Amino acid sequence: MDDGMEIKEFKTFEEQVAKLVEHGCENITSEEYAINILKRINYYRLTAYFLPFRDEKTQKYNNNKISLEKVYSLYQFDSELRLLLMEYLEDIELYFRTQIAYHHANQYGALAYKNSQNFNKFHKHEEFMENLEKELSYRRKDPVYKHHQLKYDGEFPLWVLVEFFSFGMTSKFYADSLNDIQSIIAQDLKLKTTQVRTYLEVAVVLRNYCAHYGRLYYRSFTKIPRQLPSFMTENIKIKNRLMAQLYAIKQLYGDNEKWNKDFILRLRALFTKYQSSIRLYHLGFTNDWEVVLKK
């Protein structure tokens, strides 16, 4: 083993609590309270929520601004936020599966996805077919899979096949479709094809963060939507934070009424519930965020 690389020592829950205090989080109700939290949430995961309160030079937490309750509250806020977003990202994913299957099959036929000529020049057909095989092999026990193996000799029309697509595959299928298909789908959302492609890529990454319990609070996203309002583009602390991501999601969301009357209201309620712990600017949100995110 390379001596230069020192792996950190294992620490008991008691030692983890002592480490939090040592790093500047002195405001802890009791050791028992702290251990209770650390038994449920990995220390490494929890400490990510201390980031907004860490001094760059000393790497210590600002003791005046921090308490374990507050950080735990941020953690809970983040969990609820992910659940809310997942619901809307699921709607978008299922909408796009339906759209690509319908229009591609309508234009070229049920099994036309097997022919690389029915895609544009960016399409890597072998890779696409391999990914399909992979997804199908995961689902061998699925009744839909079994039914098509028995009854249709293992042939899957596109409108069945999309049910096995990951969101990434759905996004890629859209981007690789010929322009007429991309245009029909984009027009329905009153968007340009370039917008749909870039917003979909953002949605896929955001969905993966949510599905794998990734932190959204105080997160700088690397996949930044293009074609944002100028006030977002000009400010890096807005551009690479959550509000810009939600601007992209808004564009892809087809049901205006549900977005305005359900999503916006639930997001506002969530902000209100956790208002003593969260700071909207840590999410890149401006005071007029409701106006910006309304459809």
Rank of each mutant, 00 (worst) to 15 (best):
F119G: 03
F128C: 08
T98Q: 05
T272Y: 07
I185W: 07
Y209P: 02
W159N: 02
I37H: 07
Q227I: 01
L270S: 12
L189R: 09
G168R: 10
D2G: 08
N240V: 01
E126M: 06
N256W: 00
L191T: 06
E14T: 08
K261N: 15
H148W: 08
P229V: 02
D153F: 09
R268K: 14
Q16H: 02
H282C: 10
V205Q: 01
S67P: 13
L68W: 03
H23D: 09
F271M: 08
H123T: 03
F164N: 13
Y281M: 04
L246G: 09
L158E: 09
Y88K: 00
V291S: 13
K192M: 14
D91V: 04
I236S: 13
G214D: 05
L20D: 05
Y102Q: 07
S137F: 03
M129F: 03
G168N: 07
V160D: 05
E257N: 12
M169G: 06
Q275W: 05
H103E: 09
R82G: 02
Q117P: 04
L265T: 14
E93R: 00
P143Q: 08
H23C: 06
Q275F: 07
H23P: 00
C210F: 05
A269G: 10
T170E: 00
N115H: 03
E155K: 15
L132S: 06
Q251V: 00
L252W: 04
E133V: 04
S277F: 11
E130G: 03
S67A: 11
N235P: 06
E14F: 03
L158G: 07
K295N: 06
E69F: 00
N118M: 13
K261S: 11
E90C: 00
V202D: 10
R54K: 07
L85S: 11
R241H: 12
I278G: 12
S171T: 06
L265C: 14
E6N: 14
L20E: 04
H148M: 11
N179R: 08
S220V: 01
Y247H: 02
N64A: 04
Q76P: 02
E163Q: 15
K250P: 12
E127R: 11
R226P: 02
H212N: 06
A34N: 06
T58Q: 02
G214F: 12
G109F: 02
E133D: 13
K239S: 09
F122T: 10
Y247Q: 01
Y43F: 15
T98M: 01
A110Y: 09
E163R: 15
L81E: 00
L216Q: 10
L85R: 02
E135Y: 01
P143E: 10
L94A: 03
T233E: 15
H147A: 09
D78Y: 13
N287D: 10
D91I: 01
G254C: 05
D188P: 00
L150P: 01
R279S: 15
E26M: 12
L270T: 08
Q245P: 10
L283H: 04
A101T: 07
D176T: 09
L38K: 09
S183P: 00
I100C: 04
E90Q: 03
F119V: 02
L83F: 10
N179H: 14
K190T: 15
P157Y: 09
E22R: 08
L81N: 08
